[in-house]
Design a protein around this nucleic acid. Structure first.
Lengths: 171, 171
DNA sequence: TCTTGTTAGTCAGGGTACCTGACTAAGGAG
DNA sequence: CTCCTTAGTCAGGTACCCTGACTAACAAGA
């Protein structure tokens, strides 16, 4: 395997990017209401894809414990971004739905493409997308092999989110 | 700007990668002692680059509050990965040094290149590195423009870390 | 030399993202 | 009408971060 150094360099850059993206939002996007891609933000993201889900369904789609989902849902309720109403069919389940404010929040967040991507040309953007696609695919198979139950649940989450936008813009 | 959809796709893939990498380590790397790239792990990373730093210097290099650094340092002390001894020159400062166990920990962590990168060929790895380099450079300039005081401190952190490894392997 | 201002570290307390364990209320199967 | 499962929830815990307030040490000026 002569590819070690190159892989190490790529790994370093990937780590650097991850690190930077954490502080980037805090420093740069002060004006715009940015949606974090974790916790409450993840819940909103799933709901944008499919509304009126039970907390259990959310937990499954997010590969997260139901207790955590519960916590995030109630925080979102208190922020007025989602509502809870019990299902008529099953009194145990409480359906989570986006409010118009919640829907607006995700729309705004999805609309904003990080400015630092302006450094790349169209060709480079396509290249990057393709490379990351290979990387994430490899990650999914690794995850699936290690733990078949946990994987794949959030697979379509981001892809579908951004693909939806793409389709909408084309029409 | 006709590049919007392509940028959006790339942004989506980037978000997907970030999301996955969070859960990837938890699921996959159970056997190996993985070093997280945050909190205590960040501190170790800086110390690997330059040992015997004051907590203040660590805070500066990590663009983090001194209180947080203090917390992580003491956690590392209790794990036996670093030691504290007061500077002879200035009784206020306590120098943080890696123990041999600490050094071993980072060496092991740095040695391991994520397996999902095996999905890429050497050429693709170089491409990815180059593209991410452009992206991170753009992020650094954004950060610098928005807040000249905070930026650039961790700039060399990851790069130097992995470049060092690269150089060592070449010799 | 004594005061004044700065600096390094630290304590207290707070916020968010998670987690496990234990419990209740409702549903379903026999 | 039991018995088991399921959806939600409460309690409590960990890690990563932050701000505010305080002490001890240092450094500079009167």
């Amino acid at each position: 395997m002569p590819s070690e150094p190159k892989a190490a360099l790529a790994a370093g850059k990937l780590a650097e990017y991850e690190q930077l993206s954490k502080i980037y939002d805090d420093i740069i996007k002060q004006p715009r209401p940015h949606l974090t891609v974790e916790g409450q933000g993840k819940v909103l993201l799933v709901l944008a894809d499919e509304d009126r889900l039970s907390q259990r369904q959310l937990a499954n789609r997010l590969a997260m414990s139901p207790q955590s989902v519960n916590e995030f849902v109630y925080k979102l309720v208190s922020r007025g971004l989602v509502t809870l109403d019990s299902s008529p069919r099953d009194k145990r389940v409480k359906l989570v739905s986006l409010t118009s404010a919640g829907r607006e929040t995700i729309e705004n967040a999805a609309r904003e493409v990080p400015t630092f991507l302006r450094a790349l040309s169209d060709d480079e953007l396509s290249q990057l997308t393709e490379l990351l696609d290979k990387v994430t695919k490899a990650m999914y198979t690794d995850i699936d092999n290690a733990n078949p139950t946990a994987g794949v649940k959030l697979h379509k989450l981001f892809a579908s989110r951004y693909l939806n936008r793409f389709k909408k813009q084309k029409m």
